[in-house]
Design a binder for these strands. Structure first.
Lengths: 339, 339
DNA sequence: TTGTACGCGTTATCAC
DNA sequence: GTGATAACGCGTACAA
């Protein structure tokens, strides 16, 4: 009674409508004209049978998956909600689907990334979710890739989209120094080799230098762009006499939360004793206690632009080799201002 | 020079290794024994050729996509970061991939959902991303589905996972009334027909009744679980004389942020004049200004459990028809307490 | 405008 | 232990 295959195929539709599979296919893809009567019959039969073209069969036949992939290092950060949202909007707008996966390109990670040419038409690669070598291989296969918050390795002309880090960070450190008279400012690093962190540190150093303040390595802590790590780093730092400090640039908002927690737990007042600044301007940052002075990064826009670039690639349209989205500093109260 | 197909197939591997495709397939899937020498040759050839089995071909042959889908109504809420994280962890743990899509089951939405039996092995359906009818159809095809934050329609034995809403909401309203003497408490609704909102409202009403407070329809506002909407609703309410109120249960934390913003803009002090409570306990909620009194919902756990149920379904293992995860009230300062 | 038949890359069923 | 080969569901020449 039950047929071998429970799913209804194009053949069933064809038979039921009294036409050939070719005709059905043509109607579905609107490739070639189909007589009105046939079209009418088809639309009815397809509804009755609840027919859906099998994605894999289509993929195999057309060599197009109609799927793009997003490779992340993790998803434990609220930062990713707007990013995903931006990406998803352009992906669905193009009638594509989105495959989301996490993968870390640590040296000990010998696993193949879970998404790639075998199951997608193109990849959005976030930060260090892939190592250089894997990027080279993808490029060798002419596989469409756009990088997010990461620049391509040498001689690899991959389009990338990220935000302006250095100038904004410098501006916010300038503010800490010039307006609030801070001189012992902690810099919290992100993950090792993270490019955003790198450029933010450049901005930090530039500001110090411009103000004749010596760079003190003891003032750079590991925040890893993670709340827990930042909190622990801050706590450890707090529990020892040295170094003294009067402000902390947390690296990102996520870490700033951790800093808030550690400071609060240690009974240090923000911003009266210690000024704190972040980076990203996550959705909640203006509602923190105190409201967080930070740099606004257009995260959702980053997602949208990256998605658009990928589709340009897929459609053979010209792409922008680099999209450097502007940032701006947002002065609130955690630095000591009264906004 | 360039071959017709740029991708390397199992045939290339087979030829290069001097064996048949069947042998290669067997080695890849570890289905049947392969002589050690052949295995060694294969592993080398596959590495050289950088061979990856084509997902669509596999899908077609095995009738398994090794992909599960997550259907959301939107992704503009920070709530989804932990949910996604929980889901992704179990999905990748099973060697599967995750297809994420948004779809609204509004009556005007005649589009087919972008994921389903044609491109996944099973679906995680969040709240109202699918309408009853579509659920029935999927079930008729014996397609594995687990519901998140939604109960199945009549006679549909779909497993679902959600959190305890009513008792926790009642407890938090009790707290507002008993500890802080509030009597005019605004209830902010979520989206129409949203089940969480429904049960939270039940809890709200139960508390009022238990304290002999009349239910006043003028005190229920539309928050929609969205910050912007909640803010606007609150502002509108604030700008008119009536109704007076001394507290607001925002429906969820997201809306609570909007309430904070509106109240602040109107110069009303939280919690001195108005007490505010939320639901979810998002990651940032304890760092809001003031720290938000709310209900902790184990969102990441919801994701994990839902994922596990789906894989149980896929593997023919027994499933829990209902997973009702416990919640607890978290008293902080936005209600007027001093924690 | 419509139909026939082959190929897409893989697995699975035979036979050896 | 290994090799041919028929599906899997669809698109698309090529023919009519």
């Amino acid at each position: 009674m039950t047929k071998k295959s429970s799913s209804v195929t194009i053949r069933n539709v064809a038979r039921q409508a009294g036409v050939s599979v070719a005709t059905v296919s043509r109607y579905i893809n609107h490739n070639a004209p189909v007589s009105p009567e046939v079209a009418e019959r088809l639309i009815k039969v397809m509804a009755e049978l609840n027919y859906l073209p099998h994605a894999a069969a289509r993929h195999l036949a057309t060599r197009k998956a109609r799927v793009v992939g997003l490779l992340l290092t993790n998803m434990t950060n609220d930062y990713f909600a707007p990013l995903l949202n931006g990406i998803e909007s352009v992906v669905s707008q193009h009638g594509y689907n989105l495959l989301v996966a996490t993968h870390r390109s640590a040296s000990n990670n010998d696993f193949q990334p879970p998404i790639g040419p075998h199951n997608t038409d193109g990849l959005l690669v976030f930060a260090a979710s892939l190592k250089d070598e894997q990027l080279y291989q993808l490029h060798k296969k002419k596989f469409p890739v756009v990088l997010i918050h990461r620049t391509p390795p040498d001689d690899l002309p991959l389009p990338f989209v990220t935000v302006e880090n250095k100038a904004a960070t410098r501006a916010i450190i300038d503010h800490l120094i010039e307006v609030h008279g801070k001189r012992r400012i902690i810099f919290m690093r992100g993950p090792i080799h993270n490019e955003d962190s790198h450029w933010r540190e450049m901005g930090y150093k530039a500001s110090l230098q411009a103000h004749g303040i010596d760079y003190d390595p003891a003032l750079v802590l590991a925040g890893e762009f993670e709340r827990k790590v930042a909190q622990e780093s801050m706590s450890t730092c707090l529990s020892s006499k040295y170094p003294e400090f009067d402000a902390v640039f947390a690296g990102d908002d996520e870490a700033a939360i951790g800093v808030f927690a550690a400071l609060q737990q240690a009974g240090r007042r923000v911003p009266e004793e210690i000024a704190v600044a972040g980076f990203d301007d996550q959705r909640m940052s203006s509602f923190l206690n105190p409201p967080l002075t930070t740099v606004r990064a257009p995260t959702e826009e980053v997602g949208r632009v990256a998605g658009q670039q990928l589709f340009n690639l897929l459609q053979g349209l010209p792409v922008d080799p680099v999209s450097l989205l502007p940032t701006e500093i947002i002065i609130r109260r955690s630095c000591g201002c009264n906004h």
